[in-house]
C-alpha cells in the first residue's frame, strides 16, 4: 500500500490522540481508586516500649525467647556470627546522649530491648541491589529472603545494627525447628519483620504477646486514636538516633 506524507502525518496524529485519550481514561479510572485509598486511613505500624515497666523485671528475656522460637533464630555463641532479631543493650549504649555525666540513675544500668526500627526513611532498602528489602505501605520494612543475595549492603547501611548475616548454616544452631516459619540459610541477611506473618493471621507480634510486664504496645502510629499514640501523647519518649533522619517507628518511654 502506498501512503502519502500527508496521510502518514494524519495517521500519526490520530494515533497519538488515541493514545492520549487512553491515558486520560486510565487516569480518571485510577483517580477514583487513589481517592478511595486516601480516604481509608494511612497505616504506619510502630511499637512503643515502656522502659519503666521493663526495668521492674530486670534480666527477663521472655520477648527474646518468644521471638527466637517463633522465627527459628539460631543461638550462636560466637558474637561475630550471632543472629538476632530482638536483643538488649545497656541504656548508656543505646541512648548515649540521654546521659547526664553524673548518671547513676535507676535507668542507666537497665538493659534496653532493641529491634529493627522499621524506619520511615529506611537507609537499608535504598542500597539493596535486588529489592530483597523494601518498605511496605503499612510501614513494615520487609525482607524477601528468596531474593537476598547476601551482599550485606543493608547491614552496612543500617545505623542500628538491626540486621544479621548468616555466616554459617543456622539449622544446627536451632534447638527445635518450628515448622511454621522457614529457617534461613548460610549467606542470607535477616532481621525483625514485626511478625508480619502473625499480623496476617490477626495475631500480635510474638514479643508483645510474650512480655509478662506489658512493656510493648504495638499499633498504628498514623491513627491518633491508637494505643501507641495514646502513650506517646502522655509520656516522654525517645527514638534511637532520630537526628539521622531515619524516622524510627520504635519509641522508648523513660
Amino acid at each position: 500500500m502506498k501512503i502519502t506524507r500527508k496521510e502518514f502525518l494524519r495517521l500519526t496524529g490520530l494515533s497519538l490522540l488515541a493514545g492520549g485519550a487512553m491515558q486520560v481514561v486510565r487516569a480518571i479510572g485510577q483517580g477514583g481508586t487513589a481517592a478511595r485509598a486516601a480516604a481509608s486511613q494511612p497505616v504506619r505500624l510502630g511499637m512503643v516500649i515502656d522502659l519503666s515497666k521493663c526495668r521492674e523485671k530486670d534480666g527477663c528475656n521472655e520477648c527474646i525467647h518468644a521471638c527466637n522460637t517463633t522465627h527459628n533464630i539460631p543461638q550462636i555463641a560466637n558474637r561475630a556470627h550471632e543472629v538476632k532479631w530482638i536483643w538488649t543493650e545497656p541504656f548508656g549504649t543505646v541512648f548515649p546522649s540521654a546521659q547526664t555525666g553524673y548518671a547513676e540513675q535507676s535507668y542507666t544500668k537497665v538493659q534496653v530491648p532493641l529491634m529493627c526500627n522499621h524506619c520511615a526513611e529506611p537507609p537499608c532498602t535504598r542500597v539493596c541491589p535486588t529489592r530483597a528489602t523494601w518498605k511496605r505501605d503499612d510501614g513494615i520494612v520487609m525482607m524477601d529472603w528468596h531474593r537476598c543475595i547476601g551482599c550485606r549492603y543493608c547491614i552496612a547501611a543500617c545505623p542500628y545494627g538491626s540486621r544479621s548475616f548468616n555466616w554459617q548454616d543456622p539449622r544446627p544452631a536451632i534447638a527445635s525447628i518450628n515448622p511454621d516459619f522457614p529457617t534461613r540459610t548460610k549467606g542470607i541477611v535477616e532481621k525483625c519483620n514485626f511478625c508480619e506473618e502473625r499480623l496476617a493471621r490477626g495475631m500480635k507480634p510474638a514479643c508483645v504477646e510474650a512480655c509478662p510486664q506489658g512493656v510493648f504496645t504495638f499499633g498504628n502510629l498514623a491513627d491518633p486514636e491508637s494505643e501507641p499514640r495514646d502513650l506517646l501523647r502522655s509520656r516522654f519518649a525517645l527514638q534511637r538516633e532520630p537526628e539521622l533522619g531515619t524516622g524510627p517507628s520504635v519509641y522508648y518511654l523513660m
Partner: peptide, 16 residues
C-alpha cells in the same frame, strides 16, 4: 527445603 521445613522431618528432629 534449605529453609522451608518438612513437618514429618522436623517432628523427629526436634528436641524438647
Amino acid at each position: 527445603w534449605n529453609c522451608h521445613s518438612d513437618p514429618q522431618a522436623t517432628v523427629t528432629r526436634s528436641r524438647p
